[in-house]
Design a protein around this nucleic acid. Structure first.
Lengths: 139, 139
DNA sequence: TGGTTGTTAACAAGCTCTGCGAATAAGGTC
DNA sequence: GACCTTATTCGCAGAGCTTGTTAACAACCA
């Protein structure tokens, strides 16, 4: 995800308006590597802006997702997480505490899935890897 | 998943009872590679046994899952799918029609994620790969 | 400043899945 | 085969997450 300042420009460029709610969410997401859920973000946002609604959080997250600024990640354990890191990376998910960490798997290694997939006549657009296990803290 | 006959024995062995509902679901899952949802299975089951309830379908799927006979797969698109194929494999998901196909990625290739993961102090129990794209029919 | 139009908040509802309890039926025993 | 014990089923209510709807509101432009 780009910086809040750049996002502001990008939204304006698309004819979208900049509201205090959106600015707040831009800030909360900026550099956030905690893989928060919509509800997580809402909880933090509401502390700063009591009038903000959960609906607006979802709305803004969808807008950002549509612009490719964030990714929605379904880790198969509860609600969808949002990830402002759109670089090529994957996730380690702790089966005990549920926390997710980023992991950078060798792209070349995964790229070699393509010939295999080719046999299926599949046109690949993305490869997601979820590594499940127990994190250092939970062992 | 083992055959319906073997499952019957396995359930009995565990002190679980064999009911017509369970027998029906064993049959519907046997060799089923369509990655059905609980509701999919219910729809087919109800055609044959109008009195069966969705609740029972979920219940039986959980039982089978607890016995390791099937896997629950969250493809990040709608409800959970159930997969009687518990061999080591991964999934291709079509972003257009939503269908899922099995794909056998080279295990050795994925196993080499372990040293990378090791840096995080993570104890790996499973690696799930979802390949997204468009299937042959949807291109 | 005023008008236009995108945004917000609140509420209701959809969808998937689970908890609960009474009625039912499987499987063992006599 | 009848009976008893106990697992199972069914139906419904409800939790949890997410989205649709709409009137009031506010950002932006002229």
């Amino acid at each position: 995800m780009r910086s809040p300042t750049e996002l502001t420009a990008a939204f304006r460029h698309r004819g979208l308006r900049i509201t205090p709610q959106r600015e707040l969410l831009f800030r909360l997401l900026d550099g956030n590597d905690a893989h928060p859920t919509a509800d997580d973000l809402y909880a933090v946002a509401v502390a700063e802006m009591p009038s903000i609604s959960l609906r607006t959080v979802y709305q803004t997250l969808h807008d950002l997702q549509a612009m490719g600024e964030i990714h929605a990640v379904d880790l198969g354990a509860g609600p969808i997480r949002f990830d402002p890191n759109v670089e090529d990376h994957h996730h380690l998910v702790c089966e005990v505490c549920g926390r997710a960490e980023d992991v950078h798997l060798d792209a070349g290694r995964l790229a070699s899935t393509e010939p295999v997939v080719g046999d299926h006549g599949f046109e690949v657009s993305a490869v997601e890897v979820i590594v499940r296990g127990r994190c250092a803290a939970c062992r």
